[in-house]
Amino acid sequence: METSETSEPLVARHVLEFPGGYTRTTGPVIGRFLTELRAGRIVGVRTAEGRVLVPPLEYDPASGEPVADGYVEVGPAGTVTASAWVREPRDGHPLDRPFAWAVIRLDGADTSLVHAVDAGSPKALAPGTRVWPVWRQQRQGHITDISHFAPEVTRIVSPIRPEYRIQAGGALRTFLDGIRRGVFLGGRCATCDKVYVPYRASCPECGSAIDQRVELPDTGTITTFAINNLPDPRAPEVPFVSAYILLDGADVPMIALVGGVPAHEVRQGMRVRAEWVPESERALSMANVRWFTPTGEEDAELS
């Protein structure tokens, strides 16, 4: 699609990170297992049929039925049934040197635990290899209280932080190119004869591609609004007004900040104009529009 006036890609890093990490409550079964781990023991739980699940679940994975109420200490040693060799450890992996992931049948268990093994080389970890846990000194009740396993005699808050590279292309890029020039770009659906702003690739009503671009003025009418009393990083102060603003000539409102007027003087029907940041400060961003501010015209009639 040929949409962009400039060719530089518009890219930003985007991170999803809940501050401090998700706090997970464990429930009794996982909690017991992790508590035992903190104490340096590995336990499984017995199902109604007498199988020992390690790590323990609250249910028999085969049937969904609750497990019987009996914990059994297992291991600490176990036998590797399969392993995979990580040549280049990644952030978040348990070890910072090459290691193996392994499926380990702990002594006394009927299911297998997945964990890391510090094996030195992939050759050292053939199926059947006996491995032992290597415990962390500072244990907190987390699956990583076992730092890793190691061949014979050898050895949680969940920070989640996926990172993305977001590119503004397509219609959004076209719109932001306009915003850099100080212009609101919209598009007219030829089928519905409706003008959409921001400019978009297709009509939400009929699905037709929108080819016709329209430059809209930076004046419009507040159709409705909220007075926000909770802080937001995108607003300069509290309270602030977020409003639906119908630009003149557009058929769909944009949600934007209203400023330059006390919050409680904002009205439905109020005429407003975009206040742009100085040309020298403009970027490919909606931040070019500081807010919309009253023009002083008479209020528009609302339908």
Partner: peptide, 18 residues
């Protein structure tokens, strides 16, 4: 997401104008 062109402030902020 970066570059978002719209100012929506949580569920309450979204529904209050309506």
């Amino acid at each position: 997401l970066p570059f978002n062109a719209s100012l929506v402030v949580g569920a309450g902020g979204y529904f209050a104008p309506h």
